[in-house]
Design a protein around this nucleic acid. Structure first.
Lengths: 109, 109
DNA sequence: CAGGATCCTAGTGGATACTG
DNA sequence: CAGTATCCACTAGGATCCTG
């Protein structure tokens, strides 16, 4: 049951899904990710990438140059999770109106 | 973009998914839910149910008896979210071994 | 460039006690 | 039975500064 918690936590955390969505477009470097994601702190970018890497969802590659060039990309398994999540995103799009109306009704009391 | 955050937060919070999974089996009363979910506090059970109700995912019905009987059930839209999430659960089952092996490898350094 | 190290705050959620 | 109210601990995450 706890591997389920892991996955749900991953989907629910603030940056993982967004990060995987961007990496779905192909490999990106650290600084590219930082620029692409408005509002993320260096700390959280690094932490989230490390966590994704640890779970085998993202691959980190260091080019031995100076200065170093580090690029990140989804692993095959990372891609499958990314597509699973995208069905959830479509659900959100289809039902956002319903949810917001429900809330207005609920809050009106 | 923010209705997406709402959905992801919902999936990522500690009790919503578990609660919806149980309600997927049909209407349940407050005390039934409390017993069914090991470890949930009254506070979080109430808060989570209110939040699901507010979003139109769960319907709350009060029978005017003494003592009151309150039952909860998934709305039609709540059911659709529940099935979407179940695909995520299947992903977790299929890849839990991969993830745990990845972690062991990562942690070994 | 790609981070690591610290400090600090806001929000999440548990424990407990009380109520119509 | 089905909650509400309060207090408290823990953690996620932002800001800032430093480094190979």
């Amino acid at each position: 049951m706890c591997e389920l918690r892991d996955v749900l936590d991953r989907v629910g955390d603030k940056w993982s899904v967004l990060l995987m969505a961007i990496l779905g477009g192909g490999p990106r470097r650290y600084s590219e990710l930082r620029r692409a994601i408005d509002g993320i702190s260096q700390r959280m970018l690094t932490l989230t990438l490390r966590s994704l890497e640890r779970d085998g969802l993202v691959l980190r590659t260091v080019a031995p140059t100076t200065p170093p060039q580090v690029s990140y990309e989804l692993t095959p398994v990372g891609k499958t999770l990314s597509t699973e999540v995208s069905t959830l995103i479509r659900w959100a799009e289809r039902h956002r109106e319903y949810v917001s109306v429900s809330r207005r009704i609920y809050d009106a009391k």
